[in-house]
Simulated assay, not measured.
Amino acid sequence: MGVIRGPSLAPVAGSSATASTSKSAATSSAASTAQSTYNDAAYAYASLTFQEVLEDLSSRFIVNLPAEELSSIERICFQVEQAHWFYEDFLRPINPSLPSQGLRRFSGSLLQASAQTVPLIQQYTSGGALDAVFDDFMRYKTRVPVCGIVLLNTTWDKASCLLVKGWKSSSAWGFPKGKINQSESERDCAVREMLEETGFNCDELLPGNSAEYMELTMREQRIRLYIVPGIEEETRFETLTRKEISKIAWFKLSDLPTWKKQKEPAAGLGGKFYLISPFV
């Protein structure tokens, strides 16, 4: 990718260099303020008990949602999942005394903490049905459409595509993709997931009405992958996520598995391929 050049910082004729100095000082001050705010927040969380953290997360992620969101237990559960990521990725490193919890156990804890304020949740906590709510949510998630992008290089005689590997050592390699958000188009979901997982913004490379995609349905879940060719392999990729993507790499199409021929990633890359052969 070419270097993006900004406007010149040379003083305009008749102006004073003091403006540049003031801007620099303001920027430094803003950065200092932001760091101070983060430090204050980190200090506050470092002294909270688990129950106090649950009450804070309940307020941040659930209680103050719009009324239409609070009328759907599925939408509430998506917020619980977001809160769980925030808890494990940000709060526990700040406060190591907080217990690590899987999504099921954490969901029960946070929903219990939110039940006093959200009438819909009370219906499930009073009947002891939180486990059933979690199981239904996990089944619901598997039916949410998934969108992503197959990024291709510029060399057709050595055609390659970009794959990402999950965070755990046992995670598989797959195309950048993820579940579509409410009211989000398939195309926008694909662009967002590519940006989040690889740091690459292909918004200008993928037309809003693009018909260049592959699509299939597996176990009631629709998967759509858009094709974006012509990307230089020297392009720098860096995930914007935390503890979700561990590696990003180019793979030759000839090295990928197909329905007729199964293959594994090269030694040293770890993991296996996931949902590759249906699209190759």
Rank of each mutant, 00 (worst) to 15 (best):
Q101T: 10
P66N: 02
A19R: 13
S97P: 04
F86H: 14
D56Q: 14
A46H: 13
W85N: 12
G14Y: 03
L54D: 04
S97D: 15
A42E: 13
E55M: 12
I62T: 01
F86Q: 06
Y87S: 04
S71Y: 05
L91H: 07
Q79E: 06
P93H: 08
Y87A: 06
S28H: 11
A41Y: 11
A25N: 08
D56T: 13
R60K: 15
D89Y: 10
S15Q: 08
Y45W: 08
P66D: 01
L70I: 02
L54V: 04
C77F: 13
Y38E: 11
E68H: 13
L65T: 00
F86T: 06
A67S: 14
A17F: 08
L98P: 04
S22M: 14
A67K: 09
D89E: 09
I76E: 00
E81K: 15
S16N: 09
N39K: 12
F61Y: 14
E74K: 11
Y38N: 12
A41F: 12
N64H: 14
I94Q: 04
D89V: 10
E74Y: 10
F61H: 02
S58A: 10
F86N: 06
A46F: 03
E81T: 13
I73F: 02
E74T: 06
I62R: 00
S29W: 10
S72W: 01
A25T: 11
A19G: 06
V53M: 07
L98H: 05
S59P: 01
L48Q: 14
E81G: 08
S47P: 00
E74H: 11
Q51I: 08
Y87E: 04
K23D: 10
F86E: 08
R75H: 07
T33R: 10
V80D: 01
S15L: 10
S36Y: 09
D56S: 11
S32C: 04
Q51E: 14
L57I: 05
S32W: 06
Q79I: 00
F50I: 06
Q51L: 11
E81L: 15
P66W: 00
T18M: 15
I62Y: 00
S97T: 15
A31T: 09
L65I: 00
T49H: 05
L91G: 05
A31P: 01
V53S: 04
I94D: 01
A19I: 15
A46M: 05
A83L: 02
F78N: 11
A42D: 09
S24I: 07
W85Y: 15
